[in-house]
Simulated scan of single mutants.
Amino acid sequence: MARPKNKDEYRAELAETFAHVLEERGLEWRKEWRGSGGDAPHNGITKACYRGSNAFWLSLISMMKGYTDPRWVTMVQIMDNDGKYHPKQKWHLKAGSKATYVEYWYPYDIPNKKALTWEQYKQEIADGRSDSEFKLSTRYTAVFNACDIEGMPELPAFEETDITQDELIAKLSAGMGVEILTDGGDQAYYSPSQDKIHLPTPGSFTSEYAFNATALHELSHSTGHPSRLNRDMGGFFGTSQYAYEELVAEMCSCFMGVNLDQTASPAHIDNHKAYVQSWIQAIRDKPETLIRAIKDAQSAALFMDWKAGLITDMEYSKGVGSAMEITTRSRDRDAR
């Protein structure tokens, strides 16, 4: 992105970037705050971090259920019948705990009808076998969060960082009449019934931009309240309407980020895009829906500009109903 001349140009370029986010590869969303355990979702035995959609899904489940520990383990690892994983400890799954499933892709040897590890597959190819003799297969493995396991050692508490709330957040909270509570825990959410925002403590975030951008995300949700822009926010988790609202809020927070004292790094922008990309998969008419969500995000950002006192009543009235033109890149049909 070239250096923009002004805020409108910056937002227009961001909108273009989001319009083509489905075409990008290698984007992985990372939660930018830590619970009492800190870190990204990872296996509690191997320490291997989950990647891609698995990392996003486990982070989302943690937020929904209030898990404060990033460690996840399989039932085999919990039971440890052979004393391989934690021979001096007895772990037990708490009654009523439910599994979350992660996706694992692996190479399958077609002629020999057996699954291979990736190391075995690489060796077979190095030995001269053809790619056509293998296919990708997938399986789903049940994992459980450390918060649901008795006997598992607790993680040491992390040291909180010095994070300051941006002045813009206070202006928006006051101007929109939405109280922001930093009441700890591992969840960040807007409650429509309370018309309040709940965030983890500022010191649990990885950077000042991360904290303030998350606050902007939840404030963006609050613009959909019936007393404001009155968007349809009735969708439950897993529905396309829920996913659509997440798209609007994340893009709006990115648009509003230009008003923060902190500058969004390329990594922060990529994280915004990765979050959008993860949710757009839940919506059937992907390109068209994304364009509509961008326009709703622009409307929400304009409303927030007004409530923060960044534009006048006249400027807001003039801007209502207008939207930046978003072009969609032509998509060639894949060769068959």
Rank of each mutant, 00 (worst) to 15 (best):
V102R: 12
F144W: 05
L229S: 09
T312S: 15
E245D: 15
S322V: 13
E159G: 11
D183V: 09
I294Y: 02
A297S: 02
Q123V: 07
I169M: 10
A142R: 14
L216R: 11
R34A: 10
I197P: 00
Y106Q: 01
N112T: 12
N54Q: 05
S227L: 06
S62P: 10
D69A: 06
A297C: 05
H268A: 10
T138F: 09
R129A: 07
W57D: 02
E32S: 12
H225S: 12
K114R: 15
A300N: 01
F303P: 00
L247R: 03
D82S: 14
M176G: 01
A210F: 03
E150M: 04
E245C: 06
E159W: 02
F237T: 00
M64Q: 06
R51W: 06
W105H: 13
K90A: 13
A293T: 05
N81H: 10
T74I: 07
T239L: 00
N230V: 07
F303W: 13
W306D: 08
K98N: 14
G319S: 09
S322A: 06
D305P: 05
R51G: 08
L168N: 01
T141Y: 15
K84Y: 12
V21G: 10
S330K: 07
G26S: 02
S299C: 03
N230G: 04
R11Q: 15
S53K: 08
D195P: 11
I283D: 04
L181T: 06
K90Y: 09
S240N: 08
R292K: 13
L290V: 03
A323H: 13
G185N: 03
V276D: 01
G309W: 13
N54W: 03
E159M: 10
K295C: 09
A323G: 02
G238P: 00
V73Q: 14
S132V: 13
Y50N: 01
A142G: 09
A188H: 04
P287D: 11
A12Y: 07
Y244H: 14
Y121V: 01
Q165C: 11
Y106G: 05
G96S: 08
P202Q: 03
L60F: 06
A282D: 04
A188K: 02
C49W: 05
G128N: 02
L216D: 02
P200T: 05
A282C: 06
I163S: 12
C252S: 15
A19P: 02
A142D: 13
K65W: 10
F144Y: 15
I78T: 07
